[in-house]
Simulated scan of single mutants.
Amino acid sequence: MHGVARYTMGERGVGLVRAVLVWAVRLCGLVGWVAVAVACTWLLGVGSVPRPWNGLLAWGAVAAGCAVVRVGALWGLRRVERAGGGLSLNKSDGGGSWASYDRLEPEVLSRRRPPLGYVLGRYFESRAWIRLRTCAVWLLVGFASGALFVGLLGAGSGDDRVDALRDAGARVSTATVVERPGGVREDLSEDVVRGYSARLVVAVPGGPERLVVKGAYTYDRPRAGAEVAVLWAPSAPELGGYVHERKDLRALAGGRWSAFSGGGDGRDALVAFVLVMVIGCVLAAVFTFTAGPGALQRVAWSPGVQTVRGALIVAVFLGWRPLLLGDGASLPEEVFAGGGFILVLLVYVFTSVGTIGDDD
């Protein structure tokens, strides 16, 4: 009798641990999804706030932390199931319900009000929820990739001259070209002239009468007498000026950027963002509806697959951390920050491609 009681208590203990780990996986997945969505939305609209972007950093840390905890819970669940002989969440009975809940069904059905955990568990293992969850993940992958790409364009839009001018107290003024431009070069795209770069000498109202601007970029061919917006520092005119009509100079002066500004870079960023989002929608449709619920469930609950994805999330977060804080980045950080948008797409595709056509 005591042996049976000990066995029952041991089985209940294993079941409790399994339930805790299962819900840890689910809650971390949900919170992580929300954190990534908020962080990427914040990234697209954070241009009005100068760095450091602590709020964005906090949401990124939440997403990375949830990824780590979720992976740990999945490996713990794998170990518990092997040690306790439990039934895996990866196997369906063919009717849309999963074995770990079917074991409880006779006891639960005898009650007038089933436990909330059982009801939610059955819902989270339904075919409709599995497809909805998969679609939501892929839509977020597309959105995150687009946001990372746009953010990279904006956060990396300055150069050493801009940093030096900003440190010296930069301001934006309308200046007049006072000499014939030198070294004029055309900016060609598919044999179409998009703009011109040249060396300009400009006069700034209330400032220097001869301010040298190297590598000035304008849409129209520069000429003497033309007016241009110039970024310069009243306290350090020897630094010269910065002219670039594809960029928001006022945002650069304040250490900010605009995701979809009215300039050429803003239009290019918008086109790129829409294109990546379209790719994300296509991938969402492909991976959601070409695989069976069992195959989708195996990927979602696979410790190996989720470890790879979780490691990528952490690496991208760490790579972006210097950009968010306005600090210098090491080579590995630059790799994951610069290539994060394409790495996210590639890793998720390669870890899911095996589900295509799998009706299990």
Rank of each mutant, 00 (worst) to 15 (best):
G225F: 04
R103W: 09
L152F: 13
P205F: 08
S88E: 02
K247C: 01
M1G: 13
G32L: 04
G225R: 07
P322R: 08
G292S: 13
G3Y: 07
M9F: 10
T355V: 15
V20E: 04
V212L: 14
L21W: 06
M277I: 07
G183K: 11
P181L: 03
G72D: 08
C281Q: 10
W138E: 00
P205I: 09
E227Q: 15
R111N: 03
V243E: 10
P234R: 09
L239H: 09
A128Y: 01
L165H: 05
G266L: 01
Y348I: 00
D163L: 13
R199G: 11
R185H: 15
V34N: 00
P332G: 11
A329T: 12
A24Q: 00
T41C: 03
M277Q: 11
E227F: 02
A58E: 00
F149N: 09
G310I: 06
G47N: 06
G264I: 05
C66L: 02
A64G: 02
G86E: 11
V150H: 00
G357Q: 07
V4A: 14
R256P: 04
V22E: 09
S173N: 04
I313M: 13
L188I: 13
R12V: 13
R246H: 12
R113I: 15
R122I: 02
L345H: 09
G84P: 08
L74N: 06
I342F: 12
Y348H: 14
G338E: 07
L27D: 01
R166G: 10
A236R: 15
G29D: 03
A337G: 07
G240E: 00
V353H: 00
L270I: 01
E333W: 04
L343C: 05
L43N: 02
T290D: 00
R79H: 12
W138V: 01
